[in-house]
């Protein structure tokens, strides 16, 4: 049976939506942390592509998905060091540095990949999917939602953990204060620079992990510019959920579904120009900005450097 309501269309849409949505959860969660701390991280795309390449190299060298993911996360964190040094410590313009990180990381990874792997195009080790008992047996929805690599489920745990940290711990309170009232944080004996450093490093770690997920669990190989704007979509998601980080899961999977629509439509045998479908996630972002943008919550000190000497 063909058409929009066929089983194959719905299950491939959900399964593809989860695979495309998980990197958005990781990166969006990371961006949410650094935005709360007052750092607008436009370099997210660069940290993701760095993580994608690091994960690719790690996965190949150790022949292991998990070690690859860890290498990707570390690469993302190393790239975020640029943001820490330049934006948090030296008070450079966060937007200029963000663009620098994105362009530089895109260039370096494409260059390295072209110089080292262009002849062979190796594939990373295949992933082991773990079906959750009972849940994965639900007809239509089950296989799409509950039959993935363990790192996909880990995203949910990360979101819950970060949500708890922000809400109920001292460091979470410091992060929010660094974004809303940096002077108050300093007056209370906190350290804005240290708090923002921790936040940005966590962002790099999570974005790198998300980028590595794209390569190791999603695509199976690295190609230049493989993240294809996912970092920017994740920035919008982080802006839209307005500090309620749990909503990132829902938003990311919805956008993931729109990203995976092409494959699902092809499987269902529906003929729509591919460019129209590929445009959809970005059009969706603009619509969402129109509808919810006015209410999107951004910290008061976002994108403003904190300079002790000026106060």
């Amino acid at each position: 049976m063909n058409g929009l309501f066929s089983e194959i269309f719905i299950s491939s849409l959900i399964s593809g939506g989860v695979i495309a949505g998980i990197p958005l959860i990781y990166a969006g969660l990371g961006e949410a942390i650094s935005e709360r701390a007052g750092v607008l991280n436009v370099g997210l795309e660069g940290m993701m592509i760095g993580g994608a390449y690091g994960g690719f190299v790690g996965g190949l060298s150790f022949n292991s998905t998990w070690l690859g993911l860890i290498c990707g996360a570390l690469t993302g964190m190393i790239i975020s060091l640029f943001m820490v040094v330049l934006c948090v410590r030296l008070n450079s313009n966060q937007i200029v540095v963000g663009i620098a990180i994105t362009l530089g990381a895109e260039g370096v990874t494409a260059l390295l990949h072209g110089a080292i792997y262009a002849d062979t195009y190796p594939r990373v080790p295949t992933v082991q999917q773990v079906a959750i008992p009972l849940l994965s047996d639900i007809p239509i929805l089950g296989p799409g939602l509950f039959n993935h690599h363990l790192s996909a489920y880990l995203a949910v745990i990360f979101v819950l953990f970060v949500s708890w940290v922000l809400k109920s711990t001292g460091i979470g309170l410091s992060i929010k204060a660094a974004g809303d009232q940096p002077h108050a944080l300093e007056a209370a004996g906190g350290d804005v620079h240290r708090t923002r450093t921790i936040a940005v490093l966590s962002t790099g770690l999570l974005a790198g992990f998300g980028g590595a997920f794209i390569v190791l669990v999603g695509a199976g190989l690295f190609v230049p510019f493989v993240t294809n704007g996912k970092g920017f979509i994740a920035i919008v998601l982080a802006m839209l959920v307005r500090g309620r980080v749990k909503w990132i899961i829902v938003a990311a999977v919805l956008f993931g579904m729109s990203l995976s629509l092409t494959t699902a439509l092809q499987l269902a045998g529906i003929d729509i120009p591919i460019d129209l479908v590929l445009m959809l996630p970005f059009v969706l972002i603009i619509i969402v900005l129109f509808v919810f943008g006015r209410r999107s919550y951004l910290p008061a000190a976002l994108a403003l450097p904190y300079d002790r000497e000026q106060h």
Binding site: V97, A100, L103, A115, P224
Partner: peptide
């Protein structure tokens, strides 16, 4: 014999050094 991405790399580097 390298892919033509050096310009992209250099622009990224330029921006970082500019910030410094």
């Amino acid at each position: 014999d390298i892919p033509n991405f050096m310009v992209l790399v250099m622009v990224g580097l330029l921006l970082i050094f500019m910030a410094l």
